[in-house]
Each structure stands twice: as C-alpha cells, then as structure tokens.
C-alpha cells in the first residue's frame, strides 16, 4: 500500500474509534443533540417576539441559518476534548510511537466531527421545521447550504484541534473555545439584524467572517440576496482549514503526553 492509502486507513481506524465512544459516553451525545434543540426553542420563543427582522417572513426564518452556523462552529469541541484527554491519558504518546500517519489522529477526529455535525444539523433542521421554519430556495441550494455548514464545521474542528493540543486540559480547551468563538458568533448577523446594533459594533459585525457565513446560509436557505457571501464563506472555511490543519499537525508532532 502507498503512504497515502495507509494514511487514509489510519484516519478511518481513528475516526471509527472517535465515533464508537459517542454512544458510550452519553454526556457528549447530549451536547450535540439536546443542546441545539434547546437553543432553537429558546431563541424562537424567548427572543423571537422581541427582535424585528424586516424582509423575513418571521424570526424563525431569520434565526435558523444563524443558529445552525453557530452550532456547527462549536461541533469541533468534541475534538478538543478528545485530544486533550488523549494527551492526558498518554494515548498521544502511544500513537506517536506507532508507525502510523502523523496526521491520522487529528484527521480521524475531525472526520468524526463531520458525522456528529451531520446529526446535529439534521436534528436542528427537523426542530426548525416543527417550529415553523420554511426553506424558500431550490433543493439544490438547500443541499449546498448543508454542504457549506459541514465544511464550515470541519474548519472549526481544526481550530478546536489546535486548542485541544495547546490547552492544559479538556475543560480549559473547551473554555478557550467558548471564550474565543462565542463572542464572534454573537457579534454578527446570526441572531439580530446588524443595523439594530450600536454603530461601532455594526462595523465589527459587518466585517466579521461569521456574518459572511450566516448571510451565505440565508441566501442558500431562505433566498436572501447573496452578493459574494457564498464564495466568501467557502473561502473562509478553506482558509481556516488551511491555517489550522498544518498548525495542529505541527503541534501534534511535538506533543508529549503529560
């Protein structure tokens, strides 16, 4: 077998390992099934009445692309937690002593995140439809939106991989992720129209790449004007991956378990 074939096989072995743990550690399961449901319901029913979204049928149509994008950006926390734990338990030492691909541990975890993100996404869309969300675009665009979300989630898995290998524990990796990513997702067009914000905040929100991604999703799912947002969102996702994947692999190559 070629080196590439081995790398793929190593990645699949490790992705399977990451997925096997999910039904076995139900606490994780809650965070990417129940939590997104809760968010959708809270936003729709608590804020829905108070937030004006001119140009949209109702707040649910405005919210869904935003909250889905936010959930995808956090899906990678499973990777951060897992890697931090592997470091602590000495598993990274074991993996690094094996004749396997140097990127497989990370590629396997981030790939497993795509599977769990798919589950979150399906659950959120189902709940959204139940509370009144309607796609108002072509089936092709709906599918393209799903693809964009998985790509975007994948990019963030690499960001989290880096946090997981850098932080001193799973908890602190999660905390760093939360502190960095949470504000980025809120100071954007995800939950409220940008022009309802104070003007200094508008400047930040308009230039926030997360706004680009959310606007791209609105274009793909509810037929909002797209501009360059779709390409922008794809480029941002690819760019994040292109930066954080090599950074994380470099980190992994030097990582030594506690």
């Amino acid at each position: 077998m070629s080196a590439l074939a081995y790398a793929l096989s190593d990645t699949m072995v490790l992705a399977k390992r990451s997925l096997l743990r999910i039904p076995r550690a139900p606490d994780l399961l809650l965070s990417f099934t129940v939590q997104p449901i809760m968010f959708v319901l809270l936003f729709v029913y608590v804020f829905g009445g108070a937030i004006d979204t001119p140009g949209y049928e109702d707040y649910t149509d405005f919210l869904m692309p935003g909250i889905v994008a936010q959930t995808m950006s956090f899906g990678g926390f499973v990777t951060a937690l897992g890697l931090a734990e592997d470091l602590k338990k000495g598993l990274i030492d074991r993996f690094r002593s094996l004749p396997m691909s140097r990127s497989a541990v990370l590629a396997g975890r981030t790939l497993a995140d795509v599977a769990t993100n798919t589950i979150s996404l399906a659950i959120m869309i189902a709940v959204g439809l139940i509370v009144g969300f309607r796609f108002s675009s072509s089936p092709f665009e709906v599918v393209a939106g799903i693809g964009l979300m998985l790509l975007f989630g994948y990019a963030f898995s690499w960001v989290f991989a880096y946090f997981g290998l850098t932080a001193s524990s799973g908890e602190s990796a999660q905390a760093i992720g939360f502190i960095v990513i949470f504000p980025i997702t809120f100071i954007s067009s995800a939950f409220v129209p940008v022009d309802s914000m104070p003007s200094w905040l508008q400047a930040i929100a308009e230039n926030n790449p997360f706004t680009t991604v959310v606007d791209a999703m609105r274009a793909l799912w509810v037929g909002a004007p797209a501009g360059n947002d779709i390409w922008g969102a794809v480029l941002w996702s690819l760019g994040l991956t292109a930066v954080f994947a090599p950074l994380s692999v470099a980190r992994y190559r030097r990582a030594v378990s506690a």
Binding site: R17, L20, R21, R24, A25, K89, G90, L91, D93, R94, S97, L98, P99, M100, S257
Partner: peptide, 19 residues
C-alpha cells in the same frame, strides 16, 4: 522506520477507556 520495530508501554496505561 524505527516505529515499526518498537513497542512502548508508557508510564501510565495508555488505553482508550471507551473501547
């Protein structure tokens, strides 16, 4: 190449709890 010819059992049992 060396990694194919060594086995390591580190100071703390490095096994996956959830497997």
């Amino acid at each position: 190449r060396l990694r194919a010819r060594i086995g390591l059992a580190g100071q703390y049992a490095a096994v996956d709890e959830n497997l």
